[in-house]
Simulated scan of single mutants.
Amino acid sequence: MDTTTHVAQTERRRTSPPAGSAGPSAGADPRRGPKRLSPRMRKLTLLIHVIAAVSWLGLDVGLLTLSVTGRISDDPETIRAAYVAMDVFGDVLLIPVALFTLVTGVLLGMGTRWGLLRYHWVLTKLVLTLVAFTATVAALRPGLEQAARDALRTPPEVGAAASDVLVAPCVALALYTFMTVLSVYKPWGMTRFARERLGRPGAHGAARGK
Score class of each variant (00 low, 15 high):
residue 79 I to R: 10
residue 144 L to I: 01
residue 27 G to V: 02
residue 139 A to H: 15
residue 37 L to K: 03
residue 111 G to M: 07
residue 67 S to T: 03
residue 33 G to K: 01
residue 68 V to E: 09
residue 112 T to D: 07
residue 125 K to P: 12
residue 26 A to P: 04
residue 201 P to A: 00
residue 203 A to V: 00
residue 118 R to L: 08
residue 40 R to E: 11
residue 91 D to R: 13
residue 77 E to T: 11
residue 57 L to F: 12
residue 71 R to S: 02
residue 35 K to G: 13
residue 47 L to Q: 13
residue 48 I to G: 10
residue 60 D to A: 08
residue 147 A to W: 13
residue 26 A to M: 05
residue 127 V to C: 12
residue 52 A to K: 11
residue 15 T to M: 08
residue 180 T to D: 03
residue 29 D to A: 07
residue 48 I to P: 10
residue 11 E to N: 11
residue 51 I to V: 09
residue 77 E to K: 03
residue 166 L to N: 07
residue 171 V to Q: 07
residue 196 E to T: 15
residue 8 A to W: 12
residue 142 P to S: 10
residue 132 A to F: 05
residue 15 T to W: 12
residue 135 A to N: 09
residue 141 R to K: 11
residue 198 L to C: 03
residue 159 G to I: 09
residue 183 S to L: 05
residue 193 F to N: 04
residue 118 R to A: 07
residue 176 Y to R: 01
residue 108 L to S: 09
residue 16 S to T: 08
residue 195 R to D: 00
residue 200 R to K: 10
residue 4 T to K: 15
residue 45 T to F: 15
residue 63 L to Q: 11
residue 174 A to M: 08
residue 175 L to M: 09
residue 131 V to S: 08
residue 86 M to S: 09
residue 134 T to Q: 11
residue 102 L to A: 08
residue 101 T to I: 00
residue 165 V to M: 12
residue 169 P to W: 00
residue 55 S to W: 05
residue 66 L to S: 01
residue 153 R to L: 14
residue 97 V to L: 12
residue 151 A to E: 03
residue 199 G to S: 02
residue 88 V to A: 13
residue 98 A to K: 14
residue 120 H to P: 07
residue 14 R to W: 04
residue 80 R to M: 10
residue 30 P to V: 02
residue 119 Y to M: 11
residue 40 R to A: 15
residue 141 R to G: 00
residue 151 A to K: 01
residue 159 G to F: 11
residue 13 R to F: 02
residue 89 F to K: 02
residue 202 G to L: 08
residue 172 A to K: 04
residue 105 G to A: 10
residue 100 F to L: 15
residue 209 G to D: 02
residue 46 L to G: 13
residue 89 F to M: 15
residue 95 I to Q: 08
residue 174 A to D: 01
residue 50 V to S: 04
residue 2 D to I: 00
residue 189 G to L: 04
residue 119 Y to A: 13
residue 38 S to Y: 04
residue 209 G to K: 15
residue 147 A to F: 12
residue 161 A to I: 00
residue 102 L to D: 04
residue 79 I to Q: 12
residue 69 T to E: 06
residue 31 R to I: 06
residue 55 S to G: 14
residue 180 T to L: 15
residue 126 L to N: 06
residue 120 H to R: 13
residue 161 A to N: 03
residue 182 L to E: 05
residue 168 A to N: 12
residue 52 A to S: 05
residue 52 A to M: 05
residue 22 A to H: 14
residue 122 V to M: 02
residue 6 H to V: 07
residue 43 K to W: 07
residue 126 L to E: 09
residue 143 G to D: 09
residue 142 P to V: 06
residue 181 V to P: 11
residue 206 A to Q: 12
residue 124 T to W: 02
residue 12 R to S: 09
residue 120 H to G: 06
residue 67 S to I: 02
residue 29 D to L: 08
residue 79 I to G: 14
residue 59 L to I: 01
residue 178 F to S: 15
residue 6 H to M: 14
residue 90 G to I: 01
residue 167 V to F: 15
residue 39 P to I: 04
residue 22 A to R: 07
residue 18 P to F: 03
residue 136 T to L: 04
residue 192 R to I: 10
residue 181 V to L: 14
residue 22 A to F: 11
residue 205 G to P: 02
residue 85 A to D: 07
residue 156 P to F: 15
residue 37 L to F: 09
residue 55 S to H: 06
residue 63 L to T: 08
residue 142 P to N: 03
residue 151 A to T: 01
residue 104 T to S: 15
residue 25 S to T: 07
residue 44 L to W: 13
residue 30 P to Q: 02
residue 78 T to P: 09
residue 116 L to S: 04
residue 167 V to D: 13
residue 25 S to A: 14
residue 72 I to W: 04
